[in-house]
Nucleic acid binder design. Sequence first.
RNA 1: AGCGGAGUAGAGUAAAGGUAACUCACGAGGCUCAUAACCUCGGAAUGUAGGUUCGAUUCCUGCCUCCGCAACCA
Length: 474
Amino acid sequence: MSNKTLITTAIAYANGAPHIGHAFEFVMADTLARYSRQQGDTFFITGMDEHGQKIQEKAKEKGIDVQDFVDAYAEAFKSLDKELSVIPDYFVRTSDKEKHYKGAQAIWNKLVENGDITKEKYKALYCVGCEEFKKDSDLNEKGECQAHLKAPEEVEEENYFFDLPKYTTRIKEAMVSGEMQVFPKSRENEILAFIDRGLEKVSFSRPRSKIGWGIPVPGDEEHVMYVWCDALSNYITAIGYGTESFDNERWSNTTHIIGKDILRFHAAIWPGMLLSAGLALPKKILVHGHITSGGQKMSKSLGNVIDPNEVIEMFRPVCGDLAGEALRFVLLHEIPSFEDGDITIDSIRASYTAHLVNGIGNLTSRVMKMVTTNGVTLGQPKMVTLIEDNHDMNLALKQVMNRMRTLDEYIASNEPFKVIKVDEVKGKEMLYHCLSELDVIVCELVSFMPRTSAKILECIRENKMPESPLFGRL
RNA sequence: AGCGGAGUAGAGUAAAGGUAACUCACGAGGCUCAUAACCUCGGAAUGUAGGUUCGAUUCCUGCCUCCGCAACCA
């Protein structure tokens, strides 16, 4: 089996600032990527989905050039990534004409070559207010658009369609056989049930008159690619699809990390496209839940939106350049990896105090004080990884925290600070044990909190106390 | 209405046909190496009505409540 792997996040839609849900996904993926790098050649990508009608309109509303509009959001996401110690090997942008356009057009051509993309006329209900097609289920009892309380008009449009139903059986088989694994199992069941209800052809283009901002359909100036071929293809264009340098070996060992809202696109449409293009299916699709606040979906009207940057700024005065990692920790520790999670500003503060201030921060000061005053050193810190490879970052982190608690217990019950006064040899032995345990803990923590771990390792290596408490009180 | 999942201390999770565990919060004690930290002990829970069983929180049935899915929505 290949050692090379690709880890991806979903690419963020560039029509708004990053929110806490984005932060969670990035942090989870980056942690997994760091862990994966300890075991082999890992390439980690994240990025932006920058096309589409909504973006085009918003930019127009604000009276700015679309490219400038998406550039600004790309910078906002990159800056958040940096704070959170999320460091991708490549940052995808679908407006990138060099790499992405060419790759997306290459896969389009491949699907055409295979006879899976055809032009078809269809009738649909279109709400002018929403500028969107509506299904019967989107309408109220009177057959009106729920948002605009107006009956949609029937329009006829000609678009390209992808023959997804053709791949129904193979997609199902891939899931059942484990060729493409969807975690958790309940999500796999969900998608299998969805497929069993019958897949339909998927519309793959929009008339240029409707969406000008997008990738042109090869050989047809009148049409622009719709989101599927444009956005989903980022995962392969990022590693060179459509060029000589495409790394097929890496592609064959891919893990996608996505939210539950986009499961279908990744576990049905995307595999269909890959099969048509003759490419391997993703090995794993890890599906996380959504974050609620105070038991409710975050929304501006409820006023319970948690802005990741605001949280970081809340931490900044008490832990400086570790502020982003404090949020990173809280997300990983408080949100289950595969279910919905709930956080509030209060629970964020509580988690920070309990586990970072009173936990890792205090433990570091505690151990380092004892070993530095008594001249106990570790020599070369060893690199160990004891975390089980179960994809559950939340569980894995809790195991690390458990180990910390055990060390605190050891110190309390063995009292090396007392022993050292009456029996130096025995006392030093105990302190050495404390120091090497701290070392192990930090090595385990390195994927979760890289900067924090580096700081503590530096203390261990140079036999010194942290200059100031790592995590100060809020 | 359909399909799927879930209801366990104040909060978040775990386990399980026979003493219901852990983290946070709370209360009492201890310790002084540490950031009023840390350690120990304690209070506090199986949605509801039945059924099977020597015994159910676990299995079964009804009810109530919540959540997911029902495709172009991150």
